[in-house]
Structures are given as structure tokens and as C-alpha cells.
Design a protein around this nucleic acid. Structure first.
Lengths: 188, 188
DNA sequence: TAACTAGGTTGCGAGTTGCAACTGAAAACT
DNA sequence: AGTTTTCAGTTGCAACTCGCAACCTAGTTA
């Protein structure tokens, strides 16, 4: 179970609550998806999502406030306002796809999708959103371990790994995966 | 913009709403994370998350109802109940990590993490959760395209791609990424 | 038997959500 | 020019949800 004895007690300080502050609200992900789908205007979101006007107004304002969407008056029609994804918003794509792939995998209704999301290059369906090691290997729950920063690269066998070309990603404090449970589940 | 003229109007039928039905509720992801962290008992979640008792009770019941956690009476103490992740729950790991990586990247407070989530093999930090092509290439928003099922593999240059060993993943109906916007943003 | 613990449930006030109606400004029609 | 329509919001009100504290019940410990 890693080299930590106990699961950490202070889970508050990590990226998840920060993400949920915006995206945890009821319609945020649906609006985000609509944005990815190219919707830009208030009334489009309104009719598309079937959301209440005041809620939409409120949610859009919050998404803009958090820098996920940007709000720009339309040039050709000065009543219209364009809500467009920022880079920060685009960066939510993996999270959204992961969620929806999960929803699709386990959803009650097995929907036959009509337009398929494909790789532009070969026009073949994309694979699952995955957790990658620094060198690109795909990792499952059973491959994750928790360690203190000072022990990075200290392999179980005593040898030392050095980060190659891989881009390490820093995660939040309190980032513990229950390996015992994960491995037990994987073993079943 | 793919070979579809317009963004689809019926975005309802896809995996996302199904996922949000459970995980869209306020505390669901935090409870999930606590589960990944190895917490199993009611009072543990309670003190760890600082959530209200009734809400926790309600959320746990819903997570169990949706098959994300399973509820098992403890053998040694029949008052205690263990809430453990099911496979369906474990499958939410990419979504949770994607969300928290995003939160960490853009969060106001740059938290210095103490325990780092690493690859078990070499004990080096994991990379970002990524969207993969069927053959494992990492895809960004600008690499995504939308196509009708009957046109799968029809490349822009007219040649035809055939799925290799890659495992295609089926996404929900209405799965459209606004390529124009994504590419424009990527170009900036 | 009394006290304690684990996991809930109930009641109440505060905050959120959703519907419908209204506003105000810019465009379109007549 | 004057009326109507469209766009993006705001306001009022009913229903629901959240969080806190208190209470409840079964099993465990002293």
C-alpha cells in the first residue's frame, strides 16, 4: 500500500474540490458539452438543453467568471452574445469524455450513437480516456501507487528510476488510491 | 467540421446525462475519492469530508443504488458497514483524475502535494489523463472529428483505414465536438 | 445494567432550482 | 415611423435540497 501507512486525513487540499466548485453544479457539464458541440448563443443553449432561463443565465455567468467560457458581443448582431470555450474550458474535454464514456458503458439504455467521435487522421473511433504513465503506458487502478515526493523513482526492488522524456503531472495533496481494494478488485 | 453539416439538436441521448444523474450531485465525487483513498465506513466519510450525516446517508444510498459502491455488513462488528468500490466505481477513476488534474492545473492555490500518485512500476509520477486514438496516439481537441458510422475509416484523402488491434469505444449519440472552435483555439 | 459506538432518521431554517411573467434593447417587418 | 419579434436577462414565487442539530436503534464494551 505504498510507503504510506495510513490514508491521509486532509483530503481537502487537492484539485478536486476546486474543479467541483464550478463543474459540480448541476448543469455545468451539459453546458460545456453543448459548447463543445458548437453552441454559442443563449437561446441555443436554452432550447437545446431544456434548462430554465434564470439557471442558464446564472450558470453561464459562473462559467465565464471562472474562465471556462468567454463572453463576447456578436459583431453582426449587437443583441447577440457569443459564449466560447477558452483554453481552460477546452482542457475539460478529457474529463467530460471520461464521464460520458463511463455513462455510456454502464448506462441503462444502450444508445446506438449516430455521429461517432473519431480520430481526424484515420477517421476511426477514439479509444477510452486513459491514465498514462510518464512514458505513455496505460495504467489501471492496480498500477497506481502512492509515495512521498522525496521517494520519487525509488522502485520496490531498490533500483532508481529517472524520469525520461515523460512529462510528469503533479496531483493534489491527499492523492491516495486504495491499492489494496483496487488490486483485490482487479484480481477478481 | 466533419462530414456533418450541423451540430446535432438532440444532445439528450448520450452517456453524459446518465453519468451526471449519479455523479452530478454535490458530494458524489468527493465520496468517490474518499473511497479510492480507502475509506470504508460511514463515520470515516463523515469526519473526513465534513459532510452532513443525512446528506452522506442519502449519497451513499444513491451510490449503492447505482452500483458504484457496494454495502456490506462487517464480519467482526455487526454494527459496522463497509462501503466498497465496485468495478463500475473503479471505472470512474479516469474521470475523477481528469477532473482533479484540471482543478490542480487551474486552481488558484498551487498546492504542493505531499503524497504523489505514481506508476507502481517505476515510482514516477503519472502523466495526464488523455484521449487516445485506437492505436494509442494522444489526441487533443483539434484531432477530433465527427462522422457517421457508415463512414468510419473514410479518410479525408479518400483512402480507407481499417481498425488494427485498437479497441474502439462507442460514444453517445450527439457526440459532436466543435472542430472549428477547437482548431481555432489550438491555432492561437 | 449502564455507557458507548456505528449508522441512520427527523425537524427546521437557509439556500437552490425551476417555471412563468416581465424588462429593455437591438433588429426586422409593414 | 411604428409595430412586432428576437435576444439576453431579471424578478417573483413554489418546490426541492442542503446543512445543522437532535433523536433513534441495534450491537458492543465496561
Amino acid at each position: 500500500m505504498g510507503d504510506l501507512r495510513e490514508p491521509l486525513r486532509d483530503l481537502i487540499e487537492c484539485g478536486l474540490p476546486q474543479a467541483l466548485e464550478v463543474m459540480g453544479e448541476r448543469w455545468s457539464f451539459m453546458i460545456l458539452r453543448a459548447s463543445f458541440n458548437g453552441l454559442k448563443h443563449f437561446e441555443e443553449f436554452l432550447t437545446e438543453l431544456g434548462i430554465a432561463r434564470n439557471i442558464l443565465s446564472n450558470r453561464l455567468a459562473k462559467l465565464v467568471e471562472h474562465g471556462i467560457l468567454k463572453r463576447e458581443p456578436c459583431a453582426d448582431d449587437r443583441r447577440k452574445i457569443e459564449y466560447r470555450l477558452t483554453e481552460k474550458g477546452l482542457d475539460l474535454l478529457p474529463a467530460m469524455l471520461a464521464l460520458r464514456q463511463w455513462g455510456q458503458k454502464y448506462g441503462t439504455e444502450q444508445v446506438v450513437e449516430d455521429p461517432v467521435l473519431v480520430d481526424e487522421l484515420d477517421r476511426l473511433p477514439i479509444g477510452p480516456v486513459s491514465i498514462l504513465a510518464h512514458d505513455g503506458r496505460i495504467l489501471g487502478p492496480q498500477d497506481l501507487w502512492l509515495t512521498r515526493p522525496e521517494n520519487l523513482g525509488n522502485r520496490a526492488d531498490g533500483t532508481i528510476a529517472t524520469p525520461g522524456a515523460g512529462q510528469g503531472v503533479s496531483l493534489g495533496r491527499g492523492d491516495v488510491v486504495d491499492l489494496a481494494a483496487a488490486k483485490a478488485a482487479a484480481a477478481r
